[in-house]
Simulated assay, not measured.
Amino acid sequence: MVELEAPQLDAVFHALGDATRRRMLRDLTQGERSVGDLAQPFAMSLAAASKHVKVLERAGLLQRRVQGRTHLCRLDPGALATAHEWISFYERFWTSRLDVLEGLLRKEDAQKPSGDTHD
């Protein structure tokens, strides 16, 4: 299982816990965007958008570069991929548990008399 240090994992899930930041990340899948571009769908100030960008940046979900007075952001998918691996561990755990349950239910059904129609 991939182990992320708790602060990094916490930062990723904190960043993803906000709908505005998730939308910003989705917008960045289309390519590099300025902070102003990221703010536009929300009619928020550049200062408010910048706070969201900083959270995403600290979580390692985006990279920012300055070009003149413009701050340009681009998606950094590494942290998302690592978080996905962490989640996948639990997906595999629950899938295996459900497979065991299915096997038990099938075994129980097979042991029922064929004329039994009661549930």
Results as ranks from 00 to 15, higher is better:
residue 23 R to M: 13
residue 10 D to Y: 06
residue 100 V to F: 10
residue 81 A to T: 10
residue 61 L to F: 05
residue 47 A to V: 11
residue 32 E to K: 08
residue 38 L to A: 07
residue 86 W to E: 11
residue 47 A to C: 00
residue 78 G to C: 12
residue 30 Q to I: 02
residue 24 M to H: 06
residue 94 W to Y: 13
residue 47 A to Q: 12
residue 49 A to N: 01
residue 69 R to L: 12
residue 47 A to R: 10
residue 45 S to Q: 03
residue 2 V to N: 08
residue 69 R to Y: 09
residue 55 V to C: 03
residue 44 M to E: 07
residue 92 R to W: 13
residue 47 A to P: 01
residue 54 K to N: 12
residue 37 D to R: 02
residue 3 E to A: 14
residue 2 V to C: 02
residue 119 D to W: 13
residue 100 V to M: 04
residue 7 P to W: 00
residue 73 C to R: 00
residue 55 V to P: 02
residue 109 D to E: 13
residue 108 E to V: 10
residue 104 L to P: 03
residue 69 R to C: 09
residue 71 H to V: 15
residue 59 A to D: 08
residue 111 Q to T: 05
residue 92 R to H: 13
residue 114 S to T: 12
residue 80 L to S: 04
residue 84 H to G: 14
residue 93 F to T: 12
residue 56 L to F: 01
residue 58 R to G: 08
residue 26 R to S: 14
residue 80 L to W: 07
residue 14 H to S: 07
residue 40 Q to W: 14
residue 28 L to Y: 04
residue 116 D to F: 06
residue 94 W to R: 13
residue 26 R to Q: 15
residue 5 E to Y: 13
residue 53 V to T: 03
residue 12 V to N: 02
residue 40 Q to D: 15
residue 93 F to C: 12
residue 90 Y to D: 11
residue 107 K to P: 00
residue 112 K to E: 09
residue 60 G to F: 02
residue 14 H to T: 13
residue 31 G to E: 10
residue 16 L to Q: 05
residue 41 P to Y: 08
residue 61 L to N: 02
residue 64 R to C: 06
residue 39 A to D: 00
residue 34 S to R: 00
residue 100 V to A: 05
residue 88 S to A: 13
residue 75 L to V: 03
residue 43 A to I: 04
residue 56 L to G: 00
residue 10 D to W: 07
residue 61 L to C: 04
residue 37 D to C: 00
residue 65 R to I: 03
residue 23 R to F: 05
residue 39 A to M: 05
residue 21 R to E: 09
residue 33 R to P: 01
residue 37 D to S: 00
residue 105 L to Q: 14
residue 12 V to S: 06
residue 44 M to K: 01
residue 64 R to Q: 15
residue 54 K to V: 14
residue 41 P to I: 08
residue 32 E to D: 12
residue 90 Y to S: 03
residue 10 D to G: 05
residue 66 V to C: 09
residue 43 A to W: 10
residue 63 Q to A: 15
residue 98 L to K: 15
residue 98 L to T: 12
residue 53 V to K: 01
residue 119 D to V: 10
residue 1 M to G: 10
residue 10 D to P: 02
